[in-house]
Simulated assay, not measured.
Amino acid sequence: MAALDEGAEWGEQDWDTAIGDYYAEHDRLLTDADARGPALLTVEKGPEVWVVTQTLHDPDGHDDWVIRAEVDLAASDAVGEAVVRTREMGSLTG
Rank of each mutant, 00 (worst) to 15 (best):
I67S: 00
R36C: 07
V66C: 13
A3G: 03
D63N: 15
A8H: 06
D72A: 14
Y23F: 15
V66Y: 14
R68Q: 14
A24S: 10
D60P: 01
L4M: 10
A18L: 05
P59K: 15
E81Q: 08
V83Y: 09
E70K: 10
S91Q: 15
R36D: 02
A39R: 10
E70C: 00
A69T: 05
D34T: 10
G37R: 06
D27H: 02
E25N: 04
V83C: 08
I67F: 02
E9K: 11
W50H: 14
P59S: 13
T86S: 00
D77N: 02
V49E: 09
E48Y: 13
V84C: 08
W65K: 00
Q54M: 11
V71S: 02
I19W: 09
E88V: 03
E81F: 11
G90K: 14
L41A: 01
H62F: 08
D58A: 09
R87D: 05
A82W: 02
G37N: 08
T42F: 01
D34C: 03
G20V: 05
D72P: 05
G37T: 10
G80P: 01
P47D: 13
T53R: 15
G20T: 12
L30D: 09
Y22N: 04
A69E: 02
V52R: 11
T55K: 13
R87N: 04
E25K: 05
H62E: 15
H26K: 06
V66Q: 14
T86A: 01
W15F: 15
L56Q: 06
D60V: 13
D32H: 05
Q13S: 04
D34K: 12
E88A: 13
G80T: 07
D77V: 04
R28S: 13
G90C: 03
V43I: 15
I67W: 03
V84I: 15
V49H: 03
T42E: 10
D32N: 15
A75T: 06
G90Y: 07
H62N: 14
A39G: 01
H26Y: 07
T17G: 02
A18R: 12
V51M: 08
R85D: 07
P59Q: 14
A75R: 12
R36M: 09
D5S: 05
A39Q: 01
H26R: 05
T93V: 12
G61D: 10
D32G: 08
I19V: 15
A75M: 03
S91C: 11
V84F: 04
Y22E: 06
A69V: 00
E9H: 06
V51K: 13
E48C: 05
T53M: 07
Q54Y: 10
R28W: 06
D16W: 02
D34G: 03
D32S: 10
